[in-house]
Design a protein around this nucleic acid. Structure first.
Length: 124
DNA sequence: TTTCTTACA
DNA sequence: TGTAAGGA
C-alpha cells in the first residue's frame, strides 16, 4: 500500500482553486496574511499539500461562517498550537463535523435548486 | 498555458 | 475582491 505524505507539496494554486472553489486571489491573500504557508516549486510556483487544503477549508469556514477576519484566524492557529494535541484534535474534529454538515446542507440546497430549474424548463 | 508580483478600481 | 500589466 502506498500512503502519501499529507505534507507533500502537490497542488498548484489553480488546482486548489478548482478543488475548493476558492479564487487564487484569496489563496494568495491567505499566504500574505501568514495564515497558510504553501511551499514553492523550483520556479517559484506555490505548491499546496493535503494538510494545506484542510487548513484552507478551515480558514474558509472561520471567515465565512464565524465571521473571523484573517488576523483572527491567525490568532486561532497560534492558540491551537499552544494546547495539547488531544485537545486540539477534539476541537478540530468538532469544527470538521460542522463543516461537513454545512457542506451536506449546501449540496442539498443546490440539488433542490437544480430540480426547480428542471421543473421550470419542462413547463416552458 | 499557468502562475508570479504589483497595483488600481 | 476582481482584474490587468508584464515577466518567467
Amino acid at each position: 500500500m502506498v500512503e502519501i505524505d499529507p505534507e507533500m507539496p502537490l497542488y498548484s494554486i489553480g488546482v486548489v482553486e478548482d478543488i475548493l472553489g476558492i479564487p487564487q486571489r484569496i489563496l494568495r491573500t491567505y499566504e500574505e496574511k501568514g495564515v497558510i504557508r504553501p511551499s514553492r516549486s523550483d520556479t517559484n510556483r506555490r505548491l499546496y499539500s493535503q494538510t494545506d487544503l484542510s487548513k484552507i477549508q478551515y480558514v474558509h469556514y472561520l471567515t465565512h461562517i464565524k465571521k473571523v477576519n484573517l488576523s483572527g484566524v491567525k490568532e486561532i492557529f497560534d492558540l491551537l498550537g499552544k494546547i495539547p494535541a488531544e485537545a486540539r484534535e477534539a476541537l478540530l474534529a468538532e469544527s470538521e463535523r460542522e463543516i461537513q454538515a454545512l457542506s451536506d446542507e449546501k449540496k442539498k440546497i443546490l440539488h433542490e435548486g437544480a430540480e426547480e430549474i428542471d421543473k421550470e424548463i419542462l413547463t416552458k
